[in-house]
Simulated scan of single mutants.
Amino acid sequence: MNTLFPIFVKAEKLHILIVGGGYVGLEKLTALLGNAPDTRTTLVAPEIRDEIRDIARQSPNVQLVEEPYTPAHLDDKDLVIVGTNDKAVNRQVQADCKARRILVNVADTPDLCDFYLSSVVKKGDLKIAISTNGKSPTFAKRFREVLEEILPDSLQETLDNLTAIRNQLKGDFVQKMEKLNEITKVLR
């Protein structure tokens, strides 16, 4: 049973630490900045891929720290994503985060995660997050591709029109919700 509680985080209001400068670190940094380009991000690793360096050069809010992880790297961080190929380092970061009550995701190790990173479908302002409860990120990725293909690009126009309608509605919250429910009934 999937008991995850889905939320969308305003990442640009957080300081996020990524531990790992290899392919997984690159993947997580790319996903983070693809959704929230202005997120304040620190990436720490003893070795950092050139692709990550290229991203950091183009992203003023990304700081690279080329050294091994220490607990001091958690200072002033709000969220941590770990993606090293060293299981001992991954476990240490997770334990340090737990001690400080910082939410942590350890790539490919669901038992060490407080949250999972979802596969995301984006169509303008619409975002759909897909989770398999850590069972199969590959399935989530493939399902995202299917949804991206079948959802029309005109969804942004629909969202904009609904926003304009909502802003013109009179009455209390319940009355507005009833009217919006009536208008969007065609989406079933």
Rank of each mutant, 00 (worst) to 15 (best):
F143E: 03
N167A: 09
D172N: 14
E149N: 13
E145F: 10
N167G: 02
K141M: 08
R142V: 12
L155A: 05
N167S: 07
E148H: 11
K170C: 02
K170H: 09
L155Y: 06
R166L: 07
D172R: 01
G171L: 04
E145S: 15
I165W: 02
Q168M: 05
A140M: 01
E148L: 14
L169Q: 05
F143Y: 15
E145H: 12
T158L: 13
L162P: 00
P152R: 02
A164P: 05
P152T: 08
A140K: 00
K141Q: 12
N167T: 08
Q156M: 11
N167R: 04
E149C: 07
A140G: 05
N161H: 11
L147Q: 00
R166S: 08
L155C: 04
S154V: 15
G171K: 05
D160T: 15
L169M: 06
N161I: 05
D172H: 02
E148K: 11
L162A: 05
R144W: 00
G171P: 04
D172Q: 02
R166C: 04
F143A: 09
R144A: 00
L162T: 02
Q168C: 06
A164N: 11
A140R: 00
D160K: 09
N161L: 11
L162W: 04
V146D: 14
E145D: 15
L151H: 06
R166T: 10
L159K: 00
R166V: 06
I165T: 03
R142G: 04
L147S: 02
R166F: 04
L162M: 05
D160A: 14
T158V: 14
P152C: 08
D153Y: 04
K170R: 07
Q168G: 04
R144K: 10
E148V: 10
T163V: 14
V146K: 14
L151Q: 02
